[in-house]
């Protein structure tokens, strides 16, 4: 009987050993896949240089948002910026916005929706080869101004357009 018990124990141990080996193999394989993904450029490039202005995107007030994303809340109203949005939006979850400008050397275009929980929508940094043009779709919680701030030669220029929203697009 004791011999049998001993045998059982051995079998058990062996089984466990096998299991842990399998686990180890699995883990190594997993990490190998990750390394492969990184080295093949699937994961790394954008993550390595990704910067996200958490403070600005978390700001709940328009002035704070503008100040934390641009460093200053000073901007000159300019008629050289055009914002193309329909006057009335039925569904605030999809608001097509097109911003273009005839200003020279535009480096960034920043979009705000005044009364959203977090007013900062997005910031686009453009290369000098780019034309001052951005077209995208945003969400708006309620009727308010959409503000575009265009930075050209270090100066901020702004334009706004009032949009009437029938059904808000943030939350339910």
């Amino acid at each position: 009987m004791p011999l049998n018990k001993q045998f059982n124990k051995d079998v058990c141990r062996n089984l466990f050993a096998k299991d842990s080996r399998r686990l180890f193999l699995k883990r190594t394989l997993n990490s190998a896949t990750i390394t492969l993904a990184v080295s093949s450029g699937l994961l790394l490039p954008i993550q390595a240089i990704a910067a996200w202005n958490e403070v600005a995107f978390a700001a709940t007030n328009l002035q704070t948002a503008i100040k934390s994303v641009l460093g200053t809340d000073l901007s000159r109203a300019s008629d050289k910026i055009s914002i193309k949005i329909p006057d009335i939006i039925e569904n605030g979850a999809i608001v097509p916005v097109t911003v273009s400008s005839t200003l020279k050397e535009v480096s960034t275009i920043t979009l705000f929706s005044e009364k959203n929980t977090a007013p900062l929508v997005a910031q686009f940094e453009l290369d000098k080869d780019c034309i001052a043009f951005i077209s995208t779709r945003i969400k708006m919680s309620q009727t308010s101004n959409v503000i575009a701030i265009v930075t050209a030669r270090g100066n901020n220029y702004s334009a706004r357009k009032k949009v009437k929203v029938t059904i808000g697009g943030c939350g339910d």
Binding site: N116, L120, F133, T136, R137, I138, K139
Partner: peptide, 15 residues
């Protein structure tokens, strides 16, 4: 570009 949550679902961007 840096985006916040207020960019619409299934985002579209053109430049």
């Amino acid at each position: 570009s840096q985006w916040g949550v207020a960019v619409a679902k299934n985002p579209y961007v053109s430049f």
